[in-house]
């Protein structure tokens, strides 16, 4: 019901389309690169080292003669995979901890809140670095897991406070007075009210995951697979910025920015839905009305003035 209203917003649609494009790229990109472009991301074109965009390589090549477009497309897969996996993990943890604590209250809630606060205060990025340093053969799953495990506390806190207030709303109390079961109260009465928040949390976690993956790769912690993060890291390693090979680091950077923008657009839409003051349509109508009225008023006074003038002429 509210989904349909959400889709009516142009911003939300734009955001969703961008995300969908990246998802398709992540799913079919590697196949497309190998079989359609015929330019595997790792293949080296010795005739075209650090070429600017154009010709056989629409986005140019790296220092080693690898096609940037292919790398961006292939890199999308691990970036998105890390983002989505870490977001799923973070969101599930946030729901488990936040909703449980908020709903049950009492001792359980105190314990979970303490646990959440503990995680919030931990210097997550540094910890990830340290843990990753110990793990042999980092795969994208490990990266996703590490990111996800530090991504949930903020969401959990928010969900807890929301659940707490939902739990004491009259409709939830009314269902309790009917003797409704605990699991039904949570899953049927309370959780559906949180879907908007949960989807916003998920999107945010996904972007954060993709960014964190890029950041970690930049610091040298990554799987062997190509991702946007490793691309930027490689370009930095080879002094691409100093040498002016902008086509190397700009495309993956832009992709990161684009995903961030897309989620921001969707979150705006969710906001607009839940906060009726932001709804723009009615304001537009009023502005139109005001303009029309002012014009009418102007015409009237003009006509009156003319009549007045005419009257004066007659008298004169």
């Amino acid at each position: 019901m509210s989904m349909r209203r959400l889709l009516r917003s142009g911003r939300v649609r734009a955001g969703l389309i961008i995300l969908a494009v990246f998802l398709v790229v992540a799913l079919f990109g590697p196949w497309f690169v190998d079989h359609v472009l015929g330019m595997p991301a790792e293949a080296i074109d010795y005739d075209a080292l650090h070429q600017p965009p154009g010709g056989r390589h629409p986005l140019g090549t790296t220092n080693n003669g690898q096609d940037v477009l292919s790398q961006v497309i292939v890199g999308a897969r691990s970036s998105v995979a890390v983002g989505v996996t870490s977001a799923v993990l973070a969101t599930v943890l946030a729901i488990l901890v936040g909703v449980t604590g908020g709903f049950l209250g009492g001792r359980t809630d105190q314990l979970l809140t303490m646990f959440t606060n503990l995680f919030i205060t931990m210097p997550s990025f540094a910890l990830i670095l340290i843990v990753a340093g110990y793990v042999q053969g980092v795969t994208w799953m490990v990266v996703a897991f590490l990111i996800g495990i530090f991504e949930w506390p903020g969401g959990a806190r928010y969900l807890r406070s929301q659940t707490l207030s939902l739990r004491t709303r009259d409709f939830a109390l009314a269902m309790r007075v009917l003797g409704e079961t605990r699991s039904r109260l949570i899953f049927s009465e309370i959780l559906p009210h949180l879907t908007g928040i949960i989807s916003a949390l998920f999107l945010r976690a996904m972007v954060a995951g993709i960014m964190a993956e890029a950041g970690l790769a930049f610091l040298g912690i990554s799987a062997d697979t190509i991702s946007w993060g490793t691309m930027i890291e490689d370009s930095r390693n080879q002094s691409a910025i100093r040498l002016g090979y902008w086509w190397w680091y700009l495309p993956p950077g832009l992709c990161l920015a684009l995903i961030g923008t897309a989620t921001a657009l969707i979150n705006f839409g969710i906001d607009e839905l839940s906060n009726p003051r932001l709804q723009g349509k009615e304001r537009k109508l009023v502005r139109k009305f005001d303009k029309a009225r002012r014009r009418a008023h102007l015409k009237k006074t003009e006509a009156a003035a003319q009549k007045d003038a005419a009257g004066r002429v007659m008298v004169g």
């Binding site: 009259d170 409709f171 009314a174 007075v177 009917l178 009465e189 559906p192 009210h193």
Partner: peptide, 20 residues
């Protein structure tokens, strides 16, 4: 207990889940 004692709330809009 609630099969014998029931409560009616002040605000009928608040007492009903808006999604149900």
């Amino acid at each position: 207990y609630y099969s014998r004692v029931q409560l009616i709330f002040q605000d009928p809009f608040g007492a009903l889940n808006p999604q149900k």
